[in-house]
Design a protein around this nucleic acid. Structure first.
Lengths: 111, 111
DNA sequence: TATTCATATGAATACTTTATCATATATTCA
DNA sequence: TGAATATATGATAAAGTATTCATATGAATA
């Protein structure tokens, strides 16, 4: 299974050495966030740029309350960031790890 | 947020383009698998080599039934592979994506 | 300031998931 | 073949989760 140069195997191995019980729990918590269609859709909606809540609702075709509940979970996990601009609250990806994690997942399911 | 050369940003961007509704569901399903402490612990237990069920139970300090139930989920998701050797069934990681995905997760929570 | 628009949040419900218990299956060995 | 060991699995209870509805908060504007 060649990884097409996307990562460096040695660095990967180093990253997963000596992981504490607590870190394992944190990891599970993190992945749990990605493990929901609605939240994954929100993250994808933000891949190409920031969006406010109304726009996210339109993309997902879901009601505002459901979306806001999930936005809160993503915010709490620091996967997305938010700022208010007038009446609207604008959301964006917090950092590039989100993209990488999802890309790795996509690469896996493609096989 | 420099990624220390662990991945190539262009390839990441390419991977997450044009993702269908179905692929999003599959992705959520995949991450759901990682989103459980027991399963993450099993995967870590297998990082340094294959183990049979009894050994996995010892590492996790969990009862055999609970472990087997989670092994089945990991097997079904093709994250681990198994083979029988006498009375024992030996499990190992199915491929390197597992390591990569978890390493990315770890990198994220470290910040 | 009253109203409207945008977002957040609490409570309730329906749905999912995990661990446990009991038991079944598979393999080895006496 | 019968007992022992290793693993798998079905059913159930307990815990967790997502969506919906109703309502609250916050900001802009008439």
């Amino acid at each position: 299974m060649e990884q097409a140069g996307i990562y460096d195997a040695r660095k990967i191995d180093h990253l997963i050495e000596n992981v504490s019980e607590n870190e394992l729990s944190d990891l599970a918590e993190l992945f749990k966030i990605f493990g929901d269609s609605t939240r994954i859709k929100i993250l994808f909606a933000l891949f190409h740029g920031e969006k406010n809540v109304t726009e996210i609702c339109e993309v997902l075709e879901m009601n505002q309350s459901a979306v806001s509940h999930q936005l809160k979970i993503l915010r709490t996990s620091k996967l997305i960031s938010s700022r208010r601009e007038g009446k609207a609250v604008i959301y964006g990806l917090a950092d590039d790890h989100v993209k990488t994690i999802i890309a790795m997942g996509k690469e896996h399911i493609e096989e």
